[in-house]
Amino acid sequence: EPLWIRPDAPSRCTWQLGRPASESPHHHTAPAKSPKILPDILKKIGDTPMVRINKIGKKFGLKCELLAKCEFFNAGGSVKDRISLRMIEDAERDGTLKPGDTIIEPTSGNTGIGLALAAAVRGYRCIIVMPEKMSSEKVDVLRALGAEIVRTPTNARFDSPESHVGVAWRLKNEIPNSHILDQYRNASNPLAHYDTTADEILQQCDGKLDMLVASVGTGGTITGIARKLKEKCPGCRIIGVDPEGSILAEPEELNQTEQTTYEVEGIGYDFIPTVLDRTVVDKWFKSNDEEAFTFARMLIAQEGLLCGGSAGSTVAVAVKAAQELQEGQRCVVILPDSVRNYMTKFLSDRWMLQKGFLKEEDLTEKKPWWWHLRVQELGLSAPLTVLPTITCGHTIEILREKGFDQAPVVDEAGVILGMVTLGNMLSSLLAGKVQPSDQVGKVIYKQFKQIRLTDTLGRLSHILEMDHFALVVHEQIQYHSTGKSSQRQMVFGVVTAIDLLNFVAAQERDQK
C-alpha cells in the first residue's frame, strides 16, 4: 500500500453525458421521505430548503428570480454533511469501515464536522487534520463531537509532509485500522450531490432553472449537481466560483495573481482535486475576500440567511453572472454553511477592521482624538531585521541585547519573508524542534498583521487588541530589464502597544 495517494490523481470516472444510468458502476440512493420521529440526527441530513432572495437581486438590477439552496440546514450545519454520511455509508457497505475503526480526514473543517457527527452516532474514533487558518468555532464544535484535532501550517503546499493532507496520511500509516475516506478522491463525494442535492433542486424548481452558481473546494458539490442538471435540464448554465489565490478556475489566465492566501474558508485549493470535473462548468468567476464577507453580511442583514463567507462569494458572483438572465428565468445559488463557524471572524466588526474589510468610518461609535491620525505620526525608528541564514542562537542574543521581542526576517534585497519572535524561538528550542545552530528560517511564521503608514491609529489599535505587534510595510514598484514591473513589500518598522501608548501619553502631556 502506498504511503500516500495524491489528492489530485487523474480521475478514473467514466461518467458521460447521455450515458444510461443503468451502466453506472456505483451504488445510487434515492431521496427517502422522513418519518415524523427521526431514529437519529443523521436522518436530518439532506432535504434542505430552497429560499427566495428578495432584496439583493433587485438591489443589483437582476431581472431573474434568485433562489438560495440553504445547505446550513443540514444536521452539522453545512453541505459537507451529505458527503460525510455518504462516504461512511459506502465504506461500511463495501466492508472497508468496521466497528471500532478510526476515521482520519484532512479538511478545512466542515467535512470534519460532518464526519465527527456521523462518527459520534456510529461509534468510530475520528481524527481531523486541518490548517491553522480555520476558525476556532470549527475546532470547538469538533472537540465537542469527540474528534481529535491536529493543526497544520496554512501556507504548507498540499504535497508537503507538513500539509493537512501529508499529516493525515502519516497518521494513517501509524494508526492500525485507520482510514482516510479522502473527500478529494472519493466518488461518494460527487455521488452524494448527484443522487440527492441535484434531485432536490430539480424537484423544488419543478425542473425549471436557467443558471446554477456554486463555490468550489473539493469540487464534489458542483460536479455532482452539474452532471445531473446537464442530464435533466441541459439549458442550465453552470457557474463556478473560485477565490483569488486558488488555481481551480479555467482558463488558467484567471488564476494569475501574486496573491497566495485568502481568508474565506472551505473553497479554493492549490491543486485540482480528483473529484472535480471542470468540463461540466460553463464559466468560472474569481471572487475576493472583501466581496465575500460584504455579501455574507448582506445576506444575514437583508435576507435573514445566517450563512458563512463562501455563501457571500457565491452570491457576489451570482449578481454578476445572472445579469444575462431575463424576467421569468431563474438562478439558484448554493449557500454551503452557517455563520456559526465564523462568529469571531467576519461577523465581528473588530475582525473586519483588522483585516481591512471594514473602515473605521463605517462604525458610528465615538472615537478618541488620536483615532484618525496616521501611523506615520508615530515617528517610528528604523527596524531591526535579520536574514533567514542567521542562526536561532545568534538571533536570540541580538533580540535580548537590543531589547526586542520580535524581528522581521528579510532577504538580501529587503523583501519581507516573515517574522521571528523570542517566545516562538525559545519554545521551539525547548520542544526540540530546532537547535541553536539551525537557521532562523526554520522558525519563520507568517501569521502576523501588516499595516501601512497611511493607515489610521484606530486601525492599529484594533490590531493591537488581539496581537502583540504589527509590521509596518510599504510597497515598492521595481522595474526589470524586460520592461515588466513587480510590486514588493518592504519593512518600514515594527509597532507595539507600548509605542502607541507612549505616543498618546506624550501628545497629551505636551497639550497640557
Rank of each mutant, 00 (worst) to 15 (best):
I238C: 07
I239R: 00
G240R: 04
G240Y: 00
D242W: 00
P243S: 07
G245C: 15
S246P: 01
I247Q: 08
L248R: 04
A249P: 04
A249R: 04
P251Y: 06
E252N: 14
E253F: 08
E253H: 03
E253C: 06
E253W: 08
Q256I: 12
Q256D: 05
T257F: 11
E258W: 13
E258D: 12
Q259E: 14
Q259R: 12
Q259G: 12
T261W: 09
Y262L: 01
V264K: 00
E265D: 05
I267C: 01
I267H: 00
G268N: 01
G268L: 00
Y269N: 01
I272C: 11
I272T: 10
T274G: 06
V275E: 04
D277M: 00
D277P: 01
R278Y: 06
R278P: 02
R278H: 02
R278V: 01
T279Q: 14
T279N: 15
V280L: 14
V281Q: 06
V281G: 04
V281P: 11
K283C: 14
K283V: 12
W284G: 00
W284D: 00
W284I: 00
F285P: 04
F285E: 08
F285V: 12
K286M: 02
K286G: 00
K286E: 06
S287Q: 08
N288P: 13
N288A: 15
D289M: 00
E291Y: 08
F293P: 00
T294K: 05
T294P: 02
F295K: 10
A296P: 01
R297C: 00
I300M: 11
I300L: 06
A301W: 07
Q302I: 03
G304V: 00
L305M: 11
L305V: 13
L306S: 06
C307M: 05
G309A: 04
G309I: 03
G309Q: 02
S310M: 04
G312K: 01
G312R: 05
G312F: 01
S313C: 11
S313F: 02
V315S: 08
V315T: 11
A316R: 13
V317I: 12
A318H: 01
K320E: 11
A321I: 03
A322S: 08
A322P: 01
A322V: 02
Q323P: 04
E324G: 09
E324S: 10
E324Y: 12
E324F: 15
L325T: 05
Q326A: 11
G328T: 08
G328L: 08
Q329T: 08
Q329N: 08
Q329C: 13
Q329W: 02
Q329A: 14
R330Q: 12
C331L: 09
V332I: 11
V333G: 02
V333L: 15
I334L: 08
I334A: 04
L335A: 04
L335Y: 03
P336Y: 05
P336K: 02
D337C: 03
S338M: 03
S338P: 04
V339L: 10
V339P: 06
V339Y: 08
R340T: 02
R340W: 03
N341D: 02
M343Q: 05
T344R: 07
K345V: 03
F346S: 03
F346N: 03
L347D: 00
S348G: 02
D349L: 13
R350S: 12
R350M: 13
M352D: 03
Q354V: 04
K355Y: 12
K355C: 05
F357V: 04
F357A: 00
K359I: 14
K359Y: 11
E361F: 14
L363E: 03
T364N: 13
T364I: 13
E365V: 12
E365S: 13
K367C: 11
W370A: 05
W371Q: 08
H372N: 13
L373R: 08
R374V: 08
R374Y: 02
R374Q: 05
R374A: 11
V375C: 09
Q376Y: 04
E377V: 11
E377G: 10
L378A: 12
G379L: 04
G379P: 10
A382M: 11
A382K: 11
A382Q: 14
P383C: 07
P383H: 09
P383K: 08
T385I: 15
V386S: 09
V386P: 06
V386D: 02
V386L: 14
L387Y: 11
P388E: 07
P388G: 14
T389V: 15
T389G: 10
C392N: 07
G393E: 12
G393Y: 04
H394Q: 11
I396F: 10
E397Y: 06
R400M: 08
E401K: 15
E401C: 15
K402P: 12
G403K: 09
G403T: 09
F404P: 03
D405T: 09
D405G: 06
Q406C: 08
Q406D: 02
A407M: 03
V409C: 12
V409N: 00
V410F: 11
V410M: 15
D411Y: 13
L417G: 15
G418F: 07
G418Y: 07
M419D: 12
V420H: 00
T421M: 14
L422K: 08
L422P: 04
G423L: 09
N424V: 15
N424D: 14
N424W: 11
N424E: 09
M425W: 09
L426V: 12
L426K: 10
S428T: 14
L430A: 13
A431R: 09
G432Y: 02
K433D: 02
V434N: 09
V434Y: 10
V434C: 14
Q435A: 13
Q435S: 13
S437E: 15
S437Y: 12
S437M: 12
S437L: 14
Q439S: 08
V440N: 12
V440Y: 05
G441R: 11
K442R: 15
I444M: 13
I444W: 14
I444K: 03
K446G: 07
K446Q: 11
F448M: 06
K449L: 13
K449D: 13
Q450Y: 03
Q450F: 14
I451L: 13
I451N: 12
R452S: 08
R452A: 09
T454C: 13
T456P: 12
L457K: 03
L457H: 00
S461E: 11
H462V: 15
H462W: 13
I463F: 14
L464I: 12
L464K: 08
E465S: 14
E465T: 02
E465P: 07
D467H: 09
D467Q: 10
D467K: 08
H468A: 05
F469P: 10
F469W: 13
A470M: 05
A470Q: 08
V472A: 12
V472T: 12
H474D: 11
H474S: 10
I477P: 02
Q478F: 14
Y479K: 11
G483Y: 13
S485D: 11
S486C: 15
Q487H: 13
Q487P: 11
Q487M: 15
R488Y: 13
Q489G: 05
M490V: 14
M490R: 15
M490K: 11
G493P: 12
V495A: 13
V495K: 04
T496E: 07
T496Q: 13
I498V: 12
I498N: 07
I498E: 14
L501Y: 13
N502E: 13
N502M: 10
F503P: 13
F503W: 10
V504I: 13
V504M: 13
V504Q: 09
A505Y: 06
A506L: 05
A506P: 10
Q507I: 14
Q507T: 13
R509T: 13
K512L: 14
K512P: 09
K512V: 14
